[in-house]
């Protein structure tokens, strides 16, 4: 039963990872840009939720819509004003651009909050649900629930809305989209905004589970890479599946082997998948 508990807990955390990675996957799938500032943007969102919580005592879950919207705006503006100029440039220039953004975000957070770890205090922080023999942390259930809702909202957007359908058309065939008169620049900006919104929401949810400090951003960027490659860069269900896989494998590795080896597990998994099935588990060949 202990194992089951660990697996379920990893599964719930993994759902939040999945939402975070979903953002990366959407951005890459449509714009073909690897967002090397992904973790940094999420940490920025976490600090946003932290500040509101510290000042007004609001639960991060209540702040989530606001932070998500703010991150959407940030992503939209970044793509429109800056990143769009680099979409046809070589990989290393895109890398440098996003690295510069990442560095600036982390540095700004350091200047604003210092290097110490911060967290939110919740009155239900130690509550749990008992289902049969399984004990579930209340915060983890909330976080996972939020992540699933977020992913579902994004999926519906791409599935049903005009803009969402246009973005999908754009991802399939950029030239064709231009030919039929779609405003590709705007659609790209919306896409980057949505990718950022994913980390906005994921950041608020993750703040329920972990402390935040500026330097962990890189770890989350790497984590997001691992997840999307596992699931298949550009695949939405793949990102969720990858997130859950990584969540569970981290939880198990931390328990069975040694906590410090848990990311070696994830990287090992990544290497294996890249070599055996480079398009990822659910990616298109």
């Amino acid at each position: 039963m202990l194992y089951l508990n660990i697996i379920v807990s990893g599964l719930l955390t993994g759902a939040v990872y999945g939402l975070m990675a979903l953002g990366l996957s959407v951005i890459f799938g449509v714009i073909r840009i690897v967002n090397f500032a992904h973790g940094e943007m999420m940490v920025l969102a976490m600090y946003g939720a932290y500040v509101v919580n510290a000042r007004l005592g609001l639960d991060p879950l209540l702040v989530l819509p606001l932070v998500t919207l703010a991150l959407f705006g940030l992503g939209y503006a970044l793509q429109r004003l800056l990143i769009n100029r680099y979409i046809a440039r070589p990989d290393h220039e895109q890398f440098l651009l996003l690295l510069a953004l990442a560095t600036i975000i982390t540095a700004s957070l350091l200047m604003g909050f210092g290097p110490d770890a911060r967290n939110v205090q919740l009155d239900y922080g130690y509550d749990s649900y008992q289902i049969g023999a399984i004990l579930l942390d209340k915060v983890r259930v909330f976080a996972a629930g939020g992540a699933v809702l977020g992913a579902a909202a994004l999926w519906s957007f791409f599935r049903f809305s005009r803009t969402g359908k246009a973005i999908r058309a754009c991802a399939d065939n950029q030239v064709g989209a231009q030919v039929v008169g779609l405003d590709v620049k705007r659609l790209y900006a919306v896409t980057f905004g949505l990718g950022a919104a994913c980390v906005g929401a994921a950041g608020c949810l993750l703040l329920l589970l972990v402390d935040v400090q500026p330097y962990i951003a890189t770890d989350y960027t790497l984590l997001a890479f691992i997840i999307v490659i596992l699931g298949g860069l550009g695949s939405m269900p793949g990102a969720l599946l990858g997130g859950i896989l990584v969540g569970v494998s981290e939880a198990l590795a931390g328990f069975l082997v040694e906590p410090s080896l848990k990311s070696a597990f994830s990287f090992g998994l990544l290497i294996l998948v890249l070599l055996v099935r480079p398009q990822g588990l659910l990616g298109r060949a």
Binding site: F28, V34, D91, S263, L270, L274, L275, P278
Partner: peptide, 28 residues
Amino acid sequence: SFRFRVGGVYFALLTIAFAEFTRILFDH
């Protein structure tokens, strides 16, 4: 990588993975 036709950004991310993997191994 190249035998399995891993290229471009995938190759770049794979090089990160190998470096990080080795770092953690050396930690132990």
